[in-house]
Amino acid sequence: MARTVTLSAAAVLALGGGAGWLVGSSALDAGTGTVVLAAGIAVTVWLVVMGSREAAARPMEHWRSRRLLRLAVIGLVVIVAGSAGLGFTPYGELAVPLGFGVVGALLLPASSLLGDRTYLVLGALLMLLAALGAFLALNSVGQLYPRGLVGLGAGVLLWAASAYRSGLVVQLSGARYR
């Protein structure tokens, strides 16, 4: 019997945040990067578990899932082709800001497709972060700004969106501290 795996939007955002954190931690020194990466893996796993609790609560229509898949494939093709193209130029350090800028740009049509405005804010913030990282990359030497700042910043933004989507923000704001 075949089983289908269903991921909630919060789990997908948490995995995206983990990927961003992985990219960002690779720009750090070996010792610091390992500790930062380990902390990021722990946060990602925790958010995926918390976000997967209500994965099958509301299944998506087939036409919406096809359009989302089409957006994901277009984004993947643009990121791979753009990164490969940038690798042949002296602007190869712009590959990471390009990738997260494309993800942010694709969240804008995904927002109307999913009927959730929070993806508009997330997409705009990711594009702003990518533009800042590209600007700093062109005015500095090394991978700290284009890979570190953009990767870690995108990871935090995607994790925050995951926490919001899974209801953790509401739970934490309603908690009473003594």
Rank of each mutant, 00 (worst) to 15 (best):
A161W: 04
A14Q: 05
R178Q: 04
V78N: 10
R147Q: 15
P90Q: 14
V103D: 00
M50R: 07
A154L: 09
V73C: 13
F100K: 04
A19Y: 11
V103E: 05
L28R: 03
V103Y: 00
R58L: 13
L86F: 15
Y177A: 07
Q143H: 08
L122Q: 04
A38V: 15
Y164G: 02
L138F: 14
N139G: 06
G151I: 04
A56P: 01
R3G: 08
G75R: 04
F135W: 15
L107P: 00
H62R: 06
A14S: 06
V150R: 01
A10K: 01
S83K: 12
V73T: 13
G104M: 10
A42T: 12
V121A: 08
G16C: 07
F135M: 12
A175Y: 15
G153K: 04
V169N: 00
L86K: 10
T44W: 00
G148A: 03
L98N: 10
R70I: 08
V169G: 00
V103R: 05
A39H: 02
A175W: 12
A14I: 08
A131D: 02
I74Y: 09
A57D: 13
G20M: 05
Y164R: 15
V150L: 03
A10Y: 04
A131P: 02
L120N: 08
A95V: 11
L149K: 08
E54P: 06
Y145T: 08
G33F: 01
V35P: 02
G85P: 10
L108C: 02
A19G: 11
L149E: 02
I41C: 09
S112N: 09
G155F: 03
A124L: 14
V35K: 05
W159C: 01
A56D: 04
A124V: 14
L108Q: 08
N139C: 02
L157R: 09
G148E: 00
Y91F: 15
T118L: 04
G75V: 06
A19S: 10
A72Y: 08
V49T: 07
G85M: 14
A160W: 07
P109R: 04
V103T: 10
W46N: 03
S112T: 10
Y145M: 11
Y145P: 01
L98V: 13
A10C: 04
E93I: 08
S140T: 15
S162C: 03
G33N: 03
L22K: 00
A38S: 15
A124E: 11
A11Q: 05
V170A: 12
A95M: 15
L108S: 01
V23Y: 12
T34V: 12
A124M: 07
V96A: 14
N139M: 10
D29M: 03
S140E: 12
A137C: 14
P97T: 07
E61Q: 13
A84G: 09
W21T: 11
S65Q: 12
A55Q: 00
L86W: 12
I74Q: 05
R66L: 15
A57G: 13
G51I: 03
A39R: 06
M127H: 05
V23N: 07
G18V: 01
